[in-house]
């Protein structure tokens, strides 16, 4: 238990709105960067997925095409 609560003069050294504002701006900027980064990662992921699916489809199609066999009949 304390005898007194901190007075306005006692809390004065902790009072700094400029610092609060600076930190707010910094966190806002950081949030924006994270959001942009997440967006690009998401887009990159979608592109990679698209390319992979495309390749896989091509692979499947090439397997489906029946192999041609050429026979030469000789009349001899």
């Amino acid at each position: 238990m304390r005898r007194q609560r901190l007075t306005a003069r006692g809390t004065e050294r902790f009072r700094n709105y400029d610092a609060v504002l600076r930190q707010h701006e910094q966190e806002k900027r950081m949030k924006k960067i994270v959001r942009v980064f997440t967006f690009f990662v998401l887009i990159a992921g979608i592109i990679v997925l698209y390319v992979m699916v495309n390749r896989w489809e091509k692979k499947v199609k090439s397997k489906d095409v029946p192999k041609k066999e050429v026979r030469i009949k000789s009349n001899r």
């Binding site: 902790f14 700094n16 610092a19 609060v20 504002l21 707010h24 966190e27 806002k28």
Partner: peptide
Amino acid sequence: LCSQTFVNALN
């Protein structure tokens, strides 16, 4: 913690 409180409030 007080500063962080006001930063969070602003955010």
